[in-house]
């Protein structure tokens, strides 16, 4: 099945079985390995990407769902909010093992795009779906506040 989709600003044709999770299309077919597998069941958020601007778990989106739509991954996230978030992550050295951080960053961009001055409570609600086993949550929280300063 051929699927047309805009990925990170580029028109792509996908050659994937319709039920293939977008996660594996991105990683295995397109080589966009910044999006990570963590659970395959929408429980950890490591695979978070933006689908038409909405944060989604790419392990739950199927190839057939993205026909004609726009997907943004960590590699392509570069609008003003994304830049602020990535800069804050760097400044505070948030990452430890770093494996979950693509997903954390994509979720944080989603939050800050709609809520420029999130409270700690907003962050608890927005980021609870993104697991970090290194427990860098303390710095993620701080980095979201930091990024908010420049959004």
């Amino acid at each position: 099945m051929s699927i047309s989709v805009n990925i990170n600003g580029e028109k792509r044709k996908l050659d994937a079985a319709p039920d293939t999770p977008l996660l594996w299309v991105l990683r295995d077919e397109l080589g966009l390995t910044g999006t990570k597998y963590g659970c395959g069941a929408a429980l950890c958020g490591a695979c978070s990407v933006h689908l038409d601007g909405e944060v989604v778990r790419s392990c739950q989106i199927q190839a057939q769902d993205v026909e004609g739509r726009t997907v943004t991954t960590i590699e392509g996230a570069d609008d003003k909010v994304a830049q602020a978030v990535k800069a804050a992550w760097n400044k505070l050295d948030v990452a430890q093992c770093g494996y979950c951080q693509s997903g954390q960053i994509m979720s944080a961009i989603g939050l800050l795009s709609q809520n420029a001055k999130p409270t700690n409570d907003d962050i608890d609600k927005a980021m609870d779906g993104n697991v970090c086993r290194c427990a860098t949550y303390h710095r993620i929280r701080a980095a979201i506040h930091e990024a908010a300063k420049s959004v």
Binding site: P21, G40, A41, A42, S48, E54, V55, V56, R57, C59, Q60, I61, Q62, D65, S107, G110, L111, S113, Q114, N115, D122, K125, A126, D128, G129
Partner: peptide
């Protein structure tokens, strides 16, 4: 759902046979 934790972030139009979401 909340700003970036929408129901549709995880729940799609049918049950997911693999993940059971």
């Amino acid at each position: 759902g909340f700003t970036n934790m929408r129901c549709t972030s995880c729940h799609r139009e049918e049950n997911n046979a693999y993940s059971a979401v």
